[in-house]
Design a protein around this nucleic acid. Structure first.
Length: 488
RNA sequence: GCGGGCGUAGCUUAAUGGUAAAGCACCAGCCUUCCAAGCUGGCUAUGCGGGUUCGAUUCCCGCCGCCCGCUCCA
């Protein structure tokens, strides 16, 4: 049974084993930023690859994409991030509870996820009548604080000639912006999906909680385009497919669940949304979101058609996002540049979009925590990580039983050969049982030991991480044996 | 950002207004033929800055960072 009960234990484990370090630690750290160590980078890469393999390579109806992080600013005007992502927050002076201004009520009021900043500012002046949801005190709020949710940066080395750009707050918009390109340059037909993995940046109001909410994070997103009317079916399809992915990679069933969003919790453009949550083994609020699957309807593509029509005002205002209005939607928008023509059915429409959006960092941590285990062996505690072979940072470790009699040379040769097929670790130092335990801690599924018998019959022992059992395998068939066992 | 807690070696902990201790880990060597054996030696710490003081890791202040809550969300 794993004994992790606090977040500190996880942080400690991550650092001790070289999975995750605090960023810039030698300078006192940088809030909300973390680095992946030698084992962490392999693990994270495997998580990424496992996602890509399942979502892109194993399917005929999904293609990949890798967009630049910097995009034309109008993208964010069209997506709504530029002016609707500004949440205002106030604090009740009585009970010190922090609440979003648009969540305050004075009477039964309809919920909105994000409001235009002008509206919010107007509302913010009228906090006198608002009620604190925590202590019911009326009208005792601090001045609302505005947050810039997008990171800004400058493009252009010439100071007089720079342009303000944003670091993307999600990878999805790059996919929508390339919808036409992919349609025109490949032979895909709706229904099909475009997938992307990459970094995104958000100035969250608060970060905290280790790598669960960082300002720089990695997303794995799929935008799956389908005909309106078939969207609910595809929504169910992806809901199940994504859930199964976590289970297939070894996450314990009892630690995973769906959480449907309430209708009033949905973004205004979403028809449905469900979270896949993981039960982290510490404290309160232990169910944490790993991935959201949303039915975004045709909202995004329609918005970008409006964005494309806004380009002239962009030039006229010399790129002042704040002073331009997104152009109204054309009446025949469904025939617009981001529409799809179904040649069989002879009809044109704007596809609906199902979006599974996963947090790579969060998933990586969930896999790590879920794999952690401790067990008693002969009165000693054995710590191990029971990673699924596909995720294990190191697949195989190779040891000579002792550091003499020519065993190291044989083991080294085996290791060099296996290296070409999967990550392999060679170790000849100290007692062999100690080396086994070290690999248990790293989650290495198999250890190969070369002993005296190897020289007689050319067999080695293969030791299994989970059962600690050993079997003898001929060195010639070793590679095939491991490939089969690892399923790679 | 507000409130609360915290910051000593790679990790877990100890101690002190006066030379900072231990276990584990790690490194070198000896010994070792399969589940954290043993022996010898070695490396490594008071987050950063200021103040009080003869002297601060300890007391005070500021900053940075972490954890919990509010909030948010991939």
């Amino acid at each position: 049974m794993a004994r992790i009960t606090k977040l500190e234990d996880i942080v400690s484990l991550c650092k001790r084993r070289g999975f995750i370090y605090q960023s810039s630690e030698i300078y006192g750290g940088l809030a909300s930023c973390y680095d992946y160590g030698p084992l962490g980078v392999e693990l994270k890469r495997n998580v990424r690859d496992a996602w890509w393999k399942r979502v892109v390579r194993m399917r005929d109806d999904v293609v990949g994409l890798d967009c630049s992080i910097l995009m034309h600013p109008l993208v964010w005007k069209a997506s709504g991030h530029a002016d609707k992502f500004a949440d205002l927050v106030t604090v009740c002076k009585k009970c010190n509870t922090r609440t979003r201004v648009d969540h305050l009520t004075d009477h039964a009021e309809e919920h909105t996820e994000h409001v235009a900043i002008e509206t919010a500012m107007t509302d913010a002046k009228n906090l006198d009548k608002k009620v604190c949801p925590a202590c019911r005190t009326v009208g005792r709020f601090t001045e609302p604080m505005a947050f810039k949710l997008m990171f800004e940066t400058q493009m252009g080395a010439n100071v007089d000639d720079t342009m303000t750009l944003f670091l993307r707050p999600e990878t999805a918009q790059g996919i929508f912006a390339n919808f036409r390109n992919v349609l025109d340059s490949t032979r895909v037909k709706v229904p099909f999906g475009i997938a992307q993995i990459g970094k995104a940046f958000r100035n969250e109001v608060t970060t905290k909680a280790f790598i669960f909410r960082t300002r720089e994070f990695e997303q794995a997103e799929l935008e799956f385009f389908c005909e309106p009317g078939t969207d609910e079916e595809w929504y169910e399809h992806w809901k199940q497919a994504r859930f199964d992915w976590y289970l297939d990679l070894g996450v314990k069933k009892e630690n995973l669940r769906f959480r449907d969003h309430d209708p009033d919790e949905l973004a205004h453009y979403a028809k449905a949304c469900v979270d896949i949550e993981y039960k982290f083994p510490f404290g309160s609020g232990d169910w944490q979101e790993l991935e959201g699957i949303a039915n975004r309807t045709d909202f995004d593509l329609r918005q970008h058609q409006r964005g494309m029509r806004t380009l002239n005002s962009w030039y006229e205002t010399k790129g002042d996002l704040g002073s331009i209005e997104l152009k109204e939607e054309a009446e025949d928008y469904h025939k617009g540049p981001l529409s799809f023509f179904d040649e069989q059915a002879r009809k044109r429409y704007i596809p609906y979009v199902i979006e599974p959006s996963a947090g790579i960092d969060r998933s990586t941590l969930a896999f790590l925590v879920d794999a952690y285990d401790e067990e008693e062996v002969r009165g000693e505690t054995r710590n191990l990580l029971r990673f699924h072979p596909e995720l294990a940072p190191v697949k195989v470790a190779v040891f000579p039983l002792v550091k003499k009699d020519g065993l190291p040379e044989i083991a080294r040769n085996i290791s060099d050969d296996l290296k070409r097929h999967f990550t392999c670790f060679y170790d000849q130092k100290g007692a062999v049982c100690r080396r086994y335990r070290r690999q248990d801690e790293a989650g290495t599924p198999f250890c190969i030991t070369v002993d005296g018998q190897t020289k007689d019959d050319n067999t080695v022992t293969v030791r299994d991480r989970d059962s600690m059992e050993q079997i003898r395998v001929g060195a010639d068939g070793l590679k095939a044996y491991l490939l089969e066992k690892l399923g790679v």
